[in-house]
Nucleic acid binder design. Structure first.
Lengths: 212, 212
DNA sequence: CAGCTTTCGCTACGGCTCGTAGCGTATCTG
DNA sequence: CAGATACGCTACGAGCCGTAGCGAAAGCTG
């Protein structure tokens, strides 16, 4: 995960405690649930983790970095089981993502760090590598499977194919996040079904009218 | 806007200064640009606005409420000029929304208050009434125009029509926000065009396969 | 006009968090 | 063993929070 800030010098001393690492990240998630973003403090996390406050600062520069790493782990739970059709693949990942966003630590943290990242370039990069880019794999494998099934045409131009993948990623992730967090309405199977139909229709249209 | 906290008792004293109100909201937006969300402080805003800190607390309970009101004003700039076709209507609003999210005060504040609202029910309600619900009008008028032109069928069932509008709203707003803030890629005309094609295709498919 | 009500700016305060420094101890490497 | 690093602990100045108390200003009402 490349999570903590690497010790600047080379090896040769007491290694950092791995138990402390996991305890801190777990404590951070729990603190997010109990306190939310603004009321979460470094000192509180340290106490919960049974660790000195200085230990936190030796590994993370601040609250934002800590929370990014604490939440990034959760996103790796997402999977794309091969359900046999593109429609059910999409519905599955939508519902999984919605369930993930239903957990209080996830929803609070994700928006907060994104907000912070808008005026913090290194943090933005950290989010991109730790969270965003890792989830694009879901779109790519989903498309590959659909193409193997013959449900989607193969886009010959590599650049165009990449743009389409990015577009789909933003549409799916964005819509679910907006529905769940901004509109604050439930992402249930009904909604997932309607949304999936919309996407499939759009993909079909884009496939026919290729020369956009 | 119903922004500030209403004075609990009835009228009959010195009225609150309207100049102070606008100065505070403007100072808040500027502070967001300069400092970002976490480093923005009530005291700093007060100084910028040329107002006592106590005056801020007489009107807003805290940072979140203040920022919501400061940003809500900006969203009212969005318009839906009747461009003659649904496609260009969508592209227009997408680009407008993207331009709005390009402004540092907007992007920082929007995500931050949404994050805060996940563990603050009154704040969530404030966001809903001050920002979210007011922008759904764009979807509704856009649909009405498209139906008048014959571009979209009229959905007979009121409940279904409302769900469709909510879906489209979440998809458009969510995709633009995700593209601009999470993926941190530009929302240019190219992207807007591709996205619009996707939406239109989805709408067409949903219209034909009505009995979802 | 006089009197009531509310807001305003200002100052001050206790409480909390921040992020760092310093120390002695613990743990691992060569 | 010597060197290097991490650890827990304590303490600290700095900054911000949100509130209280004051005298003065500015409207409304009769």
């Amino acid at each position: 995960m490349q999570s903590r800030s690497t010790p600047p010098t080379r090896a040769g001393g007491r290694p950092r405690s791995a138990e402390a690492d996991t305890a801190i990240l777990e404590a951070t998630r729990q603190a997010l649930v109990d306190l939310g973003w603004t009321k979460l403090t470094m000192g509180d996390v340290a106490t919960r983790a049974g660790v000195a406050k200085t230990t936190l600062y030796r590994r993370w520069a601040g609250k934002s970095e800590l929370v990014v790493d604490a939440v990034a782990e959760l996103f790796d739970e997402l999977e794309l089981p091969d359900s046999g059709s593109l429609a059910t693949d999409i519905e599955s990942v939508v519902l999984q993502f919605a369930a993930l966003l239903g957990r209080p630590e996830t929803k609070t943290a994700l928006m907060a760090v994104v907000a912070e990242s808008t005026s913090d370039e290194p943090l933005r990069e950290r989010i991109r590598t730790s969270i965003v880019d890792r989830q694009k794999r879901l779109v790519l494998t989903g498309r590959a499977r659909a193409q193997a099934r013959g449900e989607l045409p193969v886009e010959p131009d590599t650049a165009t194919a990449a743009m389409t993948a990015d577009l789909i990623f933003d549409v799916i992730a964005g819509a679910v996040v907006h529905r769940a967090l901004v509109s604050a309405e439930p992402v249930d199977t009904e909604w997932a079904h309607r949304f999936t139909l919309l996407i499939l229709g759009g993909l079909a249209a884009a496939a026919s009218g290729q020369g956009a």
